[in-house]
Design a protein around this nucleic acid. Structure first.
Length: 435
RNA sequence: GCGAGUGUCGCCAAGAGGUCAAGGCCCCGGUUUGUGGUACCGGUAUACGUGGGUUCGAUUCCCAUCACUCGCCCCA
């Protein structure tokens, strides 16, 4: 007989870069996080909206802005047909607001009583280099408030964010709230003008990125971290110039009123005139939660875990009726890193183990126990074993109690109930368990 | 897109230019047949990222490449 060669095992397929699996042990933490978000949402009357993971590419180009980094170089875009005219191109959503607004317009949600409060949670996709606190498939939870342009509406979003953090046990010493006013659409134009004018004479001292930004997206120059650039802005008092240019405008009044509300609610914040969000749709009030230096290492090089602001022109820009709106989004992976250890323990379940020499008996008892105590995990032994083996298995599976039926008990119609923590055990007649 | 670091079984981890590459954890089984979590014994595994080169010989040296991680950038 020729020796048989073992058949080679086929090569395993690996996960896509930047798209990690969430395994048991960690998924409980995600559940705790999602539950807190849903509770907070419900507590303020926000209702869930679920939109598709894919949208027409055009939506993001128009909504987020094709000059932004997100749209110009971070989107997963593809199409079925090779000759792909632009209308057929699809993109995995890089953020949530554009899709929500699209749905808002498409389904006539603008006709619903105002204000309309919506929230969403789910995966987003951005083609970036993965690193600590940053993945290509990552998750966001966002809140959107449509139809009201007022300080209270602005404040409500900040309060929501605060409530989520409180619910998760993320304490105020771990973060800072930054706020700014980026003005209305027209003001943004003027801002860009002011920045270009002010920096034109110094163009060659700016970093390469800023020289580019100056033309494409002048506002973004403001939050450049390059030492030369930052110093230049300070010397020219650029951020202050912009804020003063807003004086007397409605946007400025509303901004101050919003901040007054935050103070009244005892929510501390820092004015940050350099704060510029990377998405083009923001107007007026914008804010960001960043980790405080004491907790900075938790997020690696990332610092912002929540950002948002008002976007009064987005709905109309995407073809809907003129509708003011405010929103915010949390980066869930980052939030997860800030959550204290053990906050998922409330999901730890009381687990029972059921085994019988008669498979039918075990399945029946398990069903009865599940009905008696919803929420408890009832594990059924799936293979015939000895009492000792079953106990061993029950223990390894994390059970705290075991219902066992060996040959003797089966004949008597009894069950052995053992507490795996104390070791105490009692014999119970079948009838007592099934009531 | 650019920089840096790392790559030995599912996880952690030792190792020298030269017998069929330690150990620990996990998993499975056993220690006289129906009582676990400890202890002891035993078992499973295409494990030296991949491709070249140097060498009589490389997992150990060199080159390339890939993957992962971290950072720049950008954002949540």
């Amino acid at each position: 007989m020729p020796e048989l060669k073992p058949t080679p095992r086929p090569q395993a397929t690996k996960a896509v870069k930047g798209m990690p699996d969430i395994l048991p042990g960690v998924s409980e933490r995600w559940q705790a996080l999602e539950q807190a978000i849903r509770q907070v949402a419900a507590g303020s009357g926000y209702r869930e909206i679920r939109t598709a993971l894919m949208e027409r590419t055009e939506l993001f180009e128009r909504g987020v802005g094709d000059g932004t980094d997100i749209v110009s170089k971070e989107m997963f875009t593809f199409s079925k047909s090779a000759d792909a005219e632009s209308a057929k191109r699809l993109t995995l959503r890089p953020e949530g607001t554009a899709g929500v607004v699209r749905a808002f317009i498409e389904h006539g949600l603008s006709r619903q009583p105002k204000p309309l409060r919506l929230y969403y949670t789910g995966p987003m996709f951005r083609y970036e280099r993965p690193q600590a606190g940053r993945q290509r498939q990552f998750h966001q939870a966002g809140f959107e408030l449509f139809g009201v342009d007022s300080p209270s509406a602005d404040a409500e979003l900040v309060i929501l964010a605060k409530n989520v953090l409180d619910a998760l046990g993320v304490t105020p010493d771990l973060y800072t709230l930054h706020v700014n006013n980026v003005g209305d659409a027209a003001t943004r134009e003027r801002f860009s003008g002011i920045i270009r004018e002010a920096l034109a004479p110094h163009a060659e001292t700016l970093c390469e990125d800023c020289q580019l930004r100056l033309q494409k997206n002048a506002l973004r120059v403001l939050d450049c971290k390059h030492p030369n650039c930052a110093a230049l802005h300070t010397r020219l008092a650029l951020p202050e110039q912009l804020q003063t240019s807003l004086n007397g405008k409605p946007a400025a009044e509303q901004y101050e009123a919003t901040l007054a509300l935050l103070s009244a609610l005892k929510i501390p914040f820092e004015r940050n005139p350099r704060l510029v969000r990377g998405l083009d749709y923001y107007t007026r009030f914008v804010f960001e939660f960043t980790v405080s230096p004491s907790a900075a290492t938790k997020l690696g090089a990332q610092s912002t875990f929540c950002g948002g602001g008002r976007y009064n022109n987005l709905v109309s820009a995407l073809g809907g009726p003129e509708t003011p709106a405010v929103g915010l989004a949390f980066g869930l992976e980052r939030l997860l890193l800030l959550m204290p250890d053990g906050c998922e323990s409330k999901f730890a379940q009381d687990t029972a183990f059921v085994a019988s020499v008669q498979p039918e008996n075990a399945l029946k008892l398990a069903q009865a126990l599940r009905k008696q105590t919803p929420g408890r995990s009832v594990l059924v032994a799936l293979e015939p074993k000895t009492i000792g083996k079953w106990l061993d298995q029950a223990n390894k599976q994390g059970a705290v109690s075991a219902y066992l039926q060996g040959q003797d008990e089966a004949e008597q119609g009894d069950w052995l109930l053992k507490n795996l923590t104390t070791g105490q055990q009692t014999t119970l007649p079948q009838t007592e368990l099934f009531n």
